[in-house]
């Protein structure tokens, strides 16, 4: 197991390096610099700004400088927000996005697994169709639609919940978490239904039933373990994707998170910020994929022998 983890971590180094290099040259080849503006910027201003951020040097030299700074843990200053460093901006808003992601994941897992398992218990009956149809709606319903809908119903008309903010008014975290979690809940519902259906026909479940164990014990102790495998595999990448995709929800609900930077930085050509957020999200993706592989092995010991060799 340790060998597997350290192997994967070692593989992460070249992956990160390639991502950094490719991103760096990609963004420097995109048209429109960080300082272009609606009003013509005087030549001397452009010159001063380029000199300040070393944009007057050849790109390869900028790249080496960047790598050097990066090796010391310095993401550099933001181009769009001159008084801020990228480190400050990422680590300052990371907590918020992580918290949002965590709540959203909780919503997704609880609702998704419940619906999926309930549906799988009586396939092709109303008990199956209803939750699965709701799940389908959840998948189709993009957050830019669900968010405003929830806000209008629970915030504006019923006045039950705050419609914006994060940690300012009690309850203002509920709607964003549901909005972000909903489509993942729907995926999880479908995945867990599929997984459960598969497992329920397996011999060991039949054996357990034959031994006269009560149905809920069979489901909780035996079936869930195998049936949730696809969900576990999904969770890792999903959580990383959820963090990177929190942009829409953060905008709808005025949440000071990282997702907003990730998207805005690209539009602003805030080079250092694009690099910083990209590196940050790559690390997250790699770590969570690894985590979900480890979790899968831990839950299903049978995989240990199989994947041990295949994964390394």
């Amino acid at each position: 197991m340790l060998k597997f983890i350290s192997g994967r971590l070692l593989q992460a180094i070249p992956v990160l390096f390639i991502v950094i290099t490719a991103t760096f040259f990609l963004i420097h080849s995109a048209p429109g610099g960080p300082f272009s503006a609606d009003r013509a910027v005087p030549a001397q201003v452009i010159k001063a700004l380029n000199a300040r951020y070393h944009l007057d040097q050849p790109v390869w030299q900028q790249y080496l400088t960047y790598l050097g700074d990066l090796a010391q843990g310095d993401f550099g200053p933001s181009f769009k927000f001159p008084g801020r460093s990228v480190n400050e901006m990422i680590f300052g808003s990371l907590g918020t996005t992580a918290e949002l992601g965590l709540y959203a994941m909780l919503v997704a897992v609880i609702i998704g697994v419940l619906a999926g398992v309930v549906a799988a218990l009586k396939p092709n009956t109303a008990q199956d169709y209803v939750p699965m149809s709701v799940a389908m709606v959840g998948i189709c319903m993009p957050s830019f639609l669900l968010g405003p809908l929830l806000v209008l119903v629970f915030g504006i008309y019923l006045e039950w919940l705050p419609i914006s903010g994060w940690g300012d008014i009690p309850g203002d975290k509920i709607l964003p978490a549901i909005t972000l979690g909903a489509s993942y809940a729907a995926y999880i519902a479908r995945l867990s239904r599929g997984g459960m259906l598969e497992v329920m026909t397996q011999d060991y479940i039949r054996t357990a039933r034959a031994k006269g164990l009560p149905e809920h014990i069979v489901i909780i102790k035996h079936a869930l373990r195998g049936g949730l495998m696809p969900v576990i595999a999904f969770l890792g990448p999903a959580f990383a994707g959820l963090l990177a995709g929190s942009f829409v929800v953060e905008t709808i609900f005025q949440i000071p998170g990282l997702g907003r930077f990730y998207v805005q930085a690209a539009f602003n050509r805030d080079y250092t910020m694009i690099m910083g957020t990209t590196i940050f999200f790559s690390v997250t993706i790699i770590l969570f994929n690894l985590l979900s592989d480890i979790l899968a092995t831990w839950i299903n010991p049978k995989l240990r022998h199989q994947s041990g060799g295949a994964e390394s």
Partner: peptide, 17 residues
């Protein structure tokens, strides 16, 4: 790992380019 790399590249920049 190639898939990981492609996952990690910033999509917006890719689109703009």
């Amino acid at each position: 790992r190639l898939v990981d790399i492609l996952y990690a590249l910033p999509f917006m920049i890719f689109i703009i380019l």
